[in-house]
Design a protein around this nucleic acid. Structure first.
Lengths: 348, 348
DNA sequence: TTGTATGCGTTATCAA
DNA sequence: TTGATAACGCATACAA
């Protein structure tokens, strides 16, 4: 009696609909599940009207409990602020929506403990699938998960020795393309600026390919790899100056390992008054919206982010229902080199 | 028999834990709910060990069904790609996590129909609270929702005549600050570039304040408001050229209504070879990470996005549990003018 | 074509 | 301090 009629209206259940429509709960349930072939046209119509009139919405909690699935897909991101992650999310969401799933997101801030916590929470919500952009520091933990039945798909980062579906950029090819482009442009010295690579396959692959291609082409300066903390401005500056000094007099370029570093490098050039491309050329992974605004545009290696999300979610859909089997697959989608003014090569 | 022991292990229930620990389900339930004062130390310890051994995770679906709450908070965004939205999400998530809630996100792409669909879906999942960055085209629909008990908080955009908790930037003050700054810098002519304002309070308020302040200061050119479609490059260019022609010979500035327009304007200046700030000055709402990279930096009006998220979620927490009452409140958080090189004023 | 009865995993009520 | 039992809202097996 303490609640208004208005508020009680928010709690319409299948029983009330049944009563109002003059049929049993089972019949309503059949309607909800779309089993129209088992319903008389007249009943169906009556139910339709009753549901609309009462504004009834089936309780997903009850439904999920009974059917053993929640219609929820979990997405665990290392960094939700990164446009790279949001683009993936969009892809995931579009497919999820199409199949009637909603998305629960968790942000780990690249913290392995948080990642573990969130995986537990995801499980307790009985999510029907999980997409993880892993920190790369819970491999043993993830291995255990593999045995369970909830479909898991890794995005952007592979986990070695683990049989998980994985969707990522073809980092080796992309790096190769970028370096060959630079070599053709007759750069004499190329540096790689990357964040720490441990456990993060995308970074590792870029680093390895970088070293390999340079070695294959007679560039012996493997020392031109700078592992930096993107949030340590001083260290970044020091590394940059080091490279500029080491390569003085040579035609040189810097490859930024991701979008964050590309931003930080741009900022550092600006602060130190280093002229691009006259003094140094640069390019980088990711293709942030502002890349074409800086100077005469920054050359980038765009990643198929949206497509990664779409592919990952499609894989989840495929696994759902599929009782057993389906061998884990690693899908590598091609990146794209977008040439702009920051890497003109030898100027005549 | 068709499943491995491993897989069955994923489905530990409270009953199995009870059996293994030699107590009743009720006792386990008490442990889960943290009612330690009703448990003997010895039992408590035994339960603790059993849960760890079996790797038990309470089923949130069952829990939610029984308790009438899901531990889920819904967030409906008009555009998840916009960094503005992600920043809000971060704020929401931090607070949500602290209180044991997880976040379900939906992206409406500024589509009113999608917004309605998602609100229904959110309700069916029995979310414990809903945060909406509304498209502004479902006001009647939202009004109905107000009567129900699920706490709803609007972010960024107010809905007139509706009593909802709302958290947004203080757009009037922010716009005022920006314009006073421009007037002090002796700009003779100022234009506003905005996306369509219908139903979107933030844009409306910026527009109104723009007109008011200019009028108060003897600028009669109310015609200097350009309503543009951010995705129509041709129209944007035309509007820009129109303004530049109209204001030829005057010291002039353009105020971009949001981050998207700021980007498009920057791009257009670049394409048309228009020199900033020599030929025209500009500044804009939002403070995207690249604002300081373009030219000698773009003057911006930063919005307290993270804080908006935090405040909105705190409000939800406050309302949850609170049986009735709590008058809806509109919280306007201050923006901040960040002066950079794009608006130097009269150069001597 | 429709209905009855049972149970999903948990919590709340009551009793011991 | 602990337990038996009913109930949350729905879907399913079986019966009619």
């Amino acid at each position: 009696m303490s609640h208004s009629r208005q508020k009680d209206a928010a709690y319409v259940t299948i029983g009330q609909v049944a009563q109002a429509a003059g049929v049993s709960k089972t019949t309503i349930s059949r309607y909800i599940s779309g089993q129209y072939e088992a319903l008389a046209d007249s009943t169906r119509q009556r139910i339709e009207e009753t549901i609309a009139a009462l504004n009834y919405r089936p309780n997903q909690l009850a439904r999920g409990l009974k059917r053993g699935r929640s219609n929820l897909i979990g997405v665990i991101l290392a960094d939700i602020s990164n446009p790279f992650s949001t683009a993936i999310m969009r892809g995931v969401e579009d497919v999820a929506k199409f199949h009637g799933y909603s998305i629960v997101v968790w942000n780990t801030d690249n913290d392995a403990q948080k990642e573990r916590d969130y995986i537990f929470i995801a499980q307790s919500h009985k999510i029907d699938g999980l997409i993880i952009n892993t920190t790369g520091q819970n491999n043993a933990f993830l291995r255990d998960l593999g045995g369970q039945k909830t479909p898991i798909v890794l995005v952007d980062r592979k986990v070695p020795d683990l049989n998980f579906d994985t969707v990522c950029t073809d980092n080796r090819s992309a790096t190769e393309t970028a370096l060959h482009y630079l070599l053709e442009k007759e750069y004499e010295r190329v540096a790689l600026f990357t964040e720490p690579v441990e456990g993060i396959s995308s970074r590792t692959e870029r680093l390895e390919t970088f070293s390999r291609i340079l070695a294959e082409n007679g560039h012996v300066s493997t020392s031109d790899v700078y592992v930096v903390d993107a949030h340590n401005q001083a260290h970044l500056e020091k590394s940059l100056l080091q490279f500029l000094y080491d390569s003085r007099g040579q035609l040189r370029a810097i490859l930024a390992g991701n979008g964050v570093l590309l931003l930080k490098l741009s900022r550092t050039f600006q602060r130190l008054g280093i002229r691009v491309p006259e003094s140094v050329s640069y390019l980088g992974f990711d293709d942030p919206e502002w890349a074409l605004l800086v100077g005469s545009g920054i050359t980038t290696i765009a990643q198929p982010t949206y497509q990664i999300g779409v592919t990952a979610m499609n894989r989840i859909i495929l696994r759902i229902g599929q009782e057993d089997g389906l061998t884990p697959e690693i899908v590598e989608l091609p990146g794209e080199l977008i040439v702009r003014g920051s890497t003109p090569g030898k100027m005549t």
